[in-house]
Amino acid sequence: MIKLQEEEIRQKIREREGLISRNVLLKEQEMTRQQEELQKEHQKVLYWEAQALGEERKKLADLRQEIERQQQRLTKPQQIAYQSIALKFVPPQTVVKNTIMAFLVGGLICLSGQIIKNLFSQGGLADKEASAATSALLIFLGAFFTGIGYYDKLGKVAGAGSIVPITGFANSIVSSGLESKKEGYIYGVGAHLFTIAGPVLAYGTMISILVGLIYYFAK
């Protein structure tokens, strides 16, 4: 009896496969009918699967997954049609203005970096030390302006212009830490300090080690 029903379901799935592969937009009624059919088949197969053992169970699980796949794919054309309607109403991003602002603010931050570095060099630091000191000072400035609540306002205007410079790295650390302050210093500030900056350090370090290893073996 079950065998017969199972064969019936397999037959229905094959028929529906043709419908799905044509990627046509179904009428509302037809869609509801198909979805209800799929629910019914899924429920049946799951019920058999729960009772079956060994090979039989695996076979039914495959069938169930096939039904689940069809459930997902059935609504794809409808989703695509809707999303193309929705897209028409999306207000345009102000790309040109954003890019110009990112360029200006990012450029100014780097320019300040250059001035700071020049001052350190004049103060007698060697090139590398001056660079490191500049980074440290910029990180301080990024952290400071985040703390007094200005960096997020700058970011609203500058976008990537204030994310990409190392001040943005400091902003990500302070903003994450500050936000969780009320949850205490260990599980709040301490744990969240590197929510955004952590991946940066992890992947940066990892890749630099790979580079070192390649360099070692290639040398």
Partner: peptide, 12 residues
């Protein structure tokens, strides 16, 4: 200024 701005603009 130019190079820093350029790198940020790419990000944007």
């Amino acid at each position: 200024f130019v190079l820093g701005g350029f790198l940020c603009a790419i990000g944007q």
